[in-house]
Each structure stands twice: as C-alpha cells, then as structure tokens.
C-alpha cells in the first residue's frame, strides 16, 4: 500500500511539474499564495481604513498588531523576492 502510494505520488509529480522538482513546485506554490494573501490584505485594509481608525481609537493594542503585521508582510515579500532572485542568479537551485 505504502509503496504503491509513493509510486503514485512520484508519477503525479512528474506529470504535474513537467520538469519542475516537487520541492520547487511546493515552494513556489507557497510563495504565490503568500503574495496573493499579502496583496489581498493590502487591498482589504484600504477598503476598511475608517473602521481600522475606529478600532485603533478604542483599543491601542490593535494598532500595534496592525503595524507589526504590515511590517512582517513587507519582510515576507522581501524574503520571497530575495529567494527567487537567488534562484535566477543561479546561486541556489531547487
């Protein structure tokens, strides 16, 4: 059962990736979803700017949560760009 499952996984992998390694496929999927999440959050925040101001006025803790979240998102985007940059430069491979 286990052997056939592994074989199935590898067949599937070859079929889906078309030359892209499973690791690369997984990492790039993760990156893509991360970037989409950050972009949607950015757009969402613009839509509810007034509500955010209201919550911040009532609860200062939210201000710090919001601030730290945005800073972490910027850091994430940078790390994704830096990783892809390293791959493109040929410094690392997947």
């Amino acid at each position: 059962m286990t052997v056939s499952f592994i074989k199935y996984s590898f067949d599937l992998q070859t079929e889906i990736n078309m030359g892209l390694s499973y690791t690369a496929f997984y990492v790039y999927t993760f990156f893509a979803l991360t970037l989409v999440t950050v972009a949607l959050d950015f757009l969402g925040v613009k839509k509810i700017k007034k509500e955010i101001d209201d919550v911040v006025a009532k609860d200062q803790a939210y201000l710090y949560m919001f601030l730290f979240k945005v800073l972490a998102e910027v850091a994430l985007v940078w790390l994704v760009i830096a990783f892809i940059g390293q791959v493109l430069m040929g410094w690392i491979s997947l």
């Binding site: 955010i52 201000l63 601030l67 910027v74």
Partner: peptide, 18 residues
Amino acid sequence: TVGTPLLKALTAYVKQSP
C-alpha cells in the same frame, strides 16, 4: 527603498500611538 513606503503608508496610523 524599504523605509520610504513604510513611513508614507504607516505613519498616519502610528501617530495614534502614545
């Protein structure tokens, strides 16, 4: 590169902090 957009976008929120 990093600091300019952060200052521009977030200072309006941060200034509400004591």
